[in-house]
Amino acid sequence: EQRVMALYDFQARSPREVTMKKGDVLTLLSSINKDWWKVEAADHQGIVPAVYVRRLAH
């Protein structure tokens, strides 16, 4: 499974989004949309801005 790391803090503004802190490692579920990526963090799935995360090497 692909992982991403948060580059910045992000506060969810809707139930579809995921709140994350800089340095958090999340599971990447989908990167089809270039602006918003779907991730999973602590059993919560949602979207985060793609520019706020970076793919981690396997």
Rank of each mutant, 00 (worst) to 15 (best):
E1G: 08
Q2S: 02
Q2K: 11
Q2I: 12
R3E: 06
R3F: 13
R3L: 11
R3S: 03
R3T: 03
V4M: 04
V4K: 03
V4T: 00
V4C: 07
M5V: 15
M5A: 06
M5L: 13
A6L: 01
A6Q: 00
A6G: 03
A6I: 07
L7T: 03
L7Q: 02
L7E: 04
L7M: 12
Y8C: 15
D9G: 05
D9V: 00
D9A: 11
F10K: 07
F10C: 00
Q11F: 10
Q11P: 01
Q11L: 06
Q11S: 09
Q11T: 13
A12K: 04
A12Y: 06
A12W: 02
A12E: 06
R13F: 06
R13N: 02
S14G: 09
P15G: 08
P15R: 07
R16A: 14
E17G: 02
E17P: 08
E17L: 02
V18E: 02
V18A: 09
V18P: 04
T19W: 00
T19Q: 07
M20K: 06
M20L: 10
M20P: 02
M20Y: 01
M20N: 11
M20E: 04
K21H: 10
K21T: 04
K21I: 02
K21W: 07
K22E: 02
K22L: 07
K22W: 04
K22C: 06
D24C: 05
D24N: 03
D24K: 10
D24L: 00
D24R: 04
D24M: 07
V25M: 08
V25T: 04
V25E: 13
V25W: 01
V25R: 08
L26F: 10
L26K: 09
L26M: 09
L26R: 02
T27V: 08
T27R: 15
L28W: 07
L28M: 00
L28S: 04
L29I: 10
L29H: 08
L29V: 13
S30E: 12
S30V: 00
S30C: 09
S31I: 15
S31R: 10
S31K: 11
S31D: 15
I32G: 14
I32T: 15
N33L: 04
N33S: 09
N33R: 03
N33W: 02
K34P: 12
K34L: 14
K34G: 08
K34N: 09
D35A: 06
D35T: 07
D35G: 05
D35P: 01
D35R: 09
W36E: 15
W36F: 04
W36V: 06
W36L: 01
W37Y: 11
W37T: 12
W37F: 08
W37A: 01
W37V: 15
W37M: 12
K38I: 13
K38H: 12
K38W: 11
V39L: 01
V39S: 01
V39Q: 02
V39P: 09
V39A: 00
E40W: 05
E40P: 03
E40K: 14
A41W: 06
A41P: 05
A41K: 13
A42Y: 11
A42D: 13
D43A: 10
D43P: 06
D43V: 07
H44T: 12
H44C: 12
H44P: 00
H44N: 12
Q45P: 06
Q45A: 11
Q45H: 15
Q45C: 12
I47V: 14
I47W: 15
V48C: 07
V48R: 06
V48F: 04
V48S: 10
P49W: 02
A50G: 00
A50Q: 07
A50M: 02
A50D: 01
V51H: 14
V51T: 14
V51E: 10
V51W: 11
V51G: 14
Y52R: 07
Y52I: 01
V53P: 06
V53A: 03
V53W: 05
L56I: 12
L56W: 00
L56R: 01
L56A: 01
A57L: 02
A57H: 15
A57R: 12
H58R: 12
